[in-house]
């Protein structure tokens, strides 16, 4: 248990030291949300209708960009190899890493989604639906993304490939996450979507770290 807190502290410090880098993903999220009105009709009814889609497109993109930072430096520094050789259970290590990564890249997106939804004229009483969807959905994106980031960790420029591999797998999260916002906008209940997102989160929490560990192991095997 002491080891877990030590690892958690190390990760938190590492992200805190590079907090400027970690903020890039939330900034991209804001930019994408602001580009949509400029690229279309900025009337309230159009924007409100498409606000969940825009918010989620921004969240997906921001998450994909953020994944670059997940293992790249660790791989270059040899930290991954050291961890694989150590007695640490790799899935647990990667779960902690994903958690901290989400705190620094996912949580800001969830918080910024509130002003962004309002900027897109999404009705104020329903904004919480979007936020709940993001709160349950973005950790799934990070956990799943760990698999893709692990597979491409050994490459020089794997960012584009990671997004190609991961975006199709994000479809269910997008459907139910954005579905929360759409249903709330239409005055429908959102509990069904939230339950399904919670299921996905639990499944991803248990399965994705194992797959990420396997992916990193394959990536570090390079001759």
């Amino acid at each position: 248990m002491r080891g877990v807190t030590a690892l958690l502290r190390r990760e938190l410090q590492r992200y805190w030291r590079r907090r400027g880098d970690a903020l890039q993903a939330p900034l991209i999220f804001c930019l994408i949300c602001l580009l949509f009105p400029l690229g279309g009709v900025p009337s309230p009814e159009h924007l409100a209708r498409y606000a969940p889609a825009v918010i989620w497109a921004g969240a997906l993109t921001a998450c994909i960009f953020g994944l670059e930072a997940l293992y790249r430096q660790e791989m270059a520094e040899g930290w991954v190899d050291a961890m694989l050789l150590s007695a640490w259970p790799m899935p647990l290590v990667l779960f902690i890493k994903a958690l901290v990564h989400w705190l620094f890249t996912g949580l800001p997106v969830v918080l910024l989604a509130w002003p962004m939804s309002r900027a897109l004229y999404f009705p104020a009483e329903q904004v919480s639906a979007i936020l709940y969807g993001l709160l349950l959905g973005t950790p799934v994106l990070v956990l799943l993304g760990g698999i893709g980031a692990g597979l491409t960790a050994g490459m020089g420029r794997g960012g584009l490939l990671t997004s190609l591999l991961m975006l199709p797998l994000y479809v269910p999260v997008l459907i139910f996450g954005a579905g929360c916002g759409v249903a709330a906008h239409d005055g429908l209940p959102i509990t069904g979507q939230l339950y399904l997102l919670a299921c996905m989160l639990v499944a991803a929490m248990f399965l994705a770290p194992w797959a990420s560990a396997a992916a990193l192991k394959i990536a570090s095997e390079s001759s």
Partner: peptide, 29 residues
């Protein structure tokens, strides 16, 4: 797109045995 992802991953990794194992994991996920 899932098929194309597997093919792209295979193309991106030089060592073909490593590429096959990476693609195997991706196909499984």
């Amino acid at each position: 797109f899932l098929y194309l992802g597997v093919l792209a991953l295979d193309q991106a990794i030089e060592d073909k045995r490593q590429a096959a194992r990476a693609c195997a994991l991706l196909a499984l996920v």
